[in-house]
Amino acid sequence: MALIEVDNLTFGYEPDAPVLDGITLEIAEGERIAILGGNGSGKSTLAQWIAGWLPRGAHKASQGEVRVNGTTWQGLDARTRTETVQFVGQVPMQQLSGFAFTVWDEIVFGPGNLGLPPDEIVARAERAVAMCNLAHLLERDPFSLSGGEQQRLSIAAALAMQPRALVLDEPTGNFDPESRDILLAQMADLPGGLTTIWCDVALGPPLVVADRFLLLDEARIVFDGDARAFLAHPRTRDIFGLPAVAEVAALLAKAGRWPGGILPPFDLDEAVAAFGAVMEGTIPA
């Protein structure tokens, strides 16, 4: 059975303005998913539904629902919810609990709330610290960290809850390239069975961390598949612009200098080989 099922979900913050329109989606245990879309495409809202932050208060689905192992979010107790999905948002400072004077206290805050035995809390926190490379920051005040460090801290605090899925909403959106690369490297160290759902408006980071790609366009899912097919989808180029290597191939194709049926190169090595061949005339038009 899927871990999370989004079943024909239609939702808007205001009536007659659906942000999500008939979304159906199954997420299995251990999948690494990217949800991509342009500004205002509804991906943050979908991320909040998947993470159980929606529905809340007056914000309810006008149609459909989200189920976790067959039960809707409202049917789950608070503890099960926290142990199923954790959410990390865009603004690093907002992810901090405001309870902890040190990085270590921030990480043990969540497991402590669950009333776990102290040994278990320490073991969980130590694993999270190692995975997110925070050992040198444990005594620091969370609010004095840089944005990149705060984001790694919020991921560590989320991991200490031992969720089955982690939802990240444009987690590197506010970062410089260096902090972004550190976070991306950290993603590779996450536990294998953990489902990750990474939402973004840029192609770069998702191409590194995900193997299943969903394209959200005007409140609907218009593509669901792997990276190569995703890059070849016509709306991908419209919404994000292609990575330079793929864009060159697209321009060559437009000019009739790229053979039909061959997918565009995926990385620099493939591109050098393929475009070198075009230069030498070994790929015929």
Binding site: V201, A202, I239, F240, G241
Partner: peptide
Amino acid sequence: QRGLDRQRR
């Protein structure tokens, strides 16, 4: 330019 999609960039 941060966080803008292609059209807005």
